[in-house]
Design a protein around this nucleic acid. Sequence first.
DNA 1: TCCTGTCATACCCGCCGGGTATCACCGCGT
DNA 2: ACGCGGTGATACCCGGCGGGTATGACAGGA
Lengths: 287, 287
Amino acid sequence: MDTLETRELRYFVAVAEELHFGRAAERLGMAQPPLSRAIQQLERRLGVCLLQRNRRGVRLTGAGEVLLHEGRAALDATAAAARRTRRAGGADSPGGPRGRLVLAVKAAASHELLRKLLDAYAAEPDSAEIELLPCGICEQEELLRDGRADVALMHTPWNSLAGFDSEALTTEGQVAVLPAGHPLAARATLSLADVRDVPDLPLARWPAHGTYAPGPGPEIHNQTQLAQLIALGRTVAVVPDSARSWLWAEHTAVPLTDAPSVVTHIVWPAHSRSLALAGLVRTAARL
Amino acid sequence: MDTLETRELRYFVAVAEELHFGRAAERLGMAQPPLSRAIQQLERRLGVCLLQRNRRGVRLTGAGEVLLHEGRAALDATAAAARRTRRAGGADSPGGPRGRLVLAVKAAASHELLRKLLDAYAAEPDSAEIELLPCGICEQEELLRDGRADVALMHTPWNSLAGFDSEALTTEGQVAVLPAGHPLAARATLSLADVRDVPDLPLARWPAHGTYAPGPGPEIHNQTQLAQLIALGRTVAVVPDSARSWLWAEHTAVPLTDAPSVVTHIVWPAHSRSLALAGLVRTAARL
DNA sequence: TCCTGTCATACCCGCCGGGTATCACCGCGT
DNA sequence: ACGCGGTGATACCCGGCGGGTATGACAGGA
């Protein structure tokens, strides 16, 4: 009577994202009329108006906004259930799942820590196989939520750990990476104010959640691009200390005194009960 | 193709909990054969064996255990989506939901903090209505997960904050509550070792997650019962400092030097976007 | 005013979820 | 050893509903 079907959630999320029944139906691979009817039934069953149908287009009501957020979370949770169950498939050890673990890592994350972790875990007596899933920044949370990954290495303050369990592993400062010849490169330390608003060196902008913050600096997509632009004297970047490992000869790293520390965490879904995951976390905690 | 329906999850969770198709079908209000068929279809679609059908009864496989946990979480999430959407129903302010908030509180929790919080929040310019939902200890996490509550006051180390966002509000020590005449009641401070294993005063046992830890002490169900048993000289209890407010004349509270501190947190679902909740948390943070 | 784009309605059909009856199988009691 | 009870699986049928096509209602723009 009052239990939402995932089909209904899928339909509603599609409509709420497209704000257009026709396009949503196309995305769902179905015709528009049944979709309209399904949404109407959903509204009747919930006893709530979800969409404001104006003649031209569709708008979300307050309740619709709520269902969009909550519905996405619910869909992620069911997708995660399916994925994790499939992955636990072959292994039928009664003591608990002992399959492989999927570790989501940012492509540009610190190699050293990752290597140490993988080596240490592989040396454990009964360690599971670790599958690495490279991904962009800020994508890890989604991977963890919908079950494509079991565990991730995240970095505050860029990632939010909301909704997950986590354990802090390392803390590091940040450095400004400058062209080797630049006047600021001669300084022993710098402050954020020094590197922000340098007229000839606009601060590079990384994408966050798919969008770029406004600013004068170049929009960069990967670290090679960034390294090149810095070497050409076109930009400056603020990166964690461990990024020194991929610097070029044309770069100079200067410690920043007032930049927020970067903390690397190992992060996993809050309700996870996997023995393999517990072992990995234990290994990481005494890195 | 690979999307689990909540109906299937409901069915599987019922079977996995009952470990008996007949009883599960009865609980679901349906006949047994379609349930068997549904589970078979689920197993075929996932490509995974979930249940070990022995001649007598049913056992969960490893994958089945995973699906039981993950499926429960997914069902909670969809139930929460339905509940929160319904609750957001009437209010159709485009700026965001501005309805009432459901606050889950342990019946025996500290009155003072709660009263201060409610008074301070009510004095805010545009505060939502707060509905109090009294509940037992450890029940709050479930209420928050499945959407019956929007926010809760929890106490570490008893509650786990895993999977939620939270903000610490207050920290307090713990005291031993003894019968007034008892020799230990004359001491200025005590250690946990002093009150544990006192021959004539076995430590009272609270229920945790529906079960009682083994031990000699009485199993108590509410604080009145506890107060009476202490007054009668039958038991001793370790409680947070703020519990002094409900002590009787026949009780003596002695500070414990080495008991873990009790931290009261305000806790809410990680992905919540409600303005009213944000206001309550802001108020609580500067209590 | 017509055309266009949008969502809603009307109607039909095939699938599948659910019910009933029954089977296959095993453990247990006498 | 045999029958009985209790388990889950199978066979078969039916009704509802999810989905498709055709069309309507209605507002906005040229």
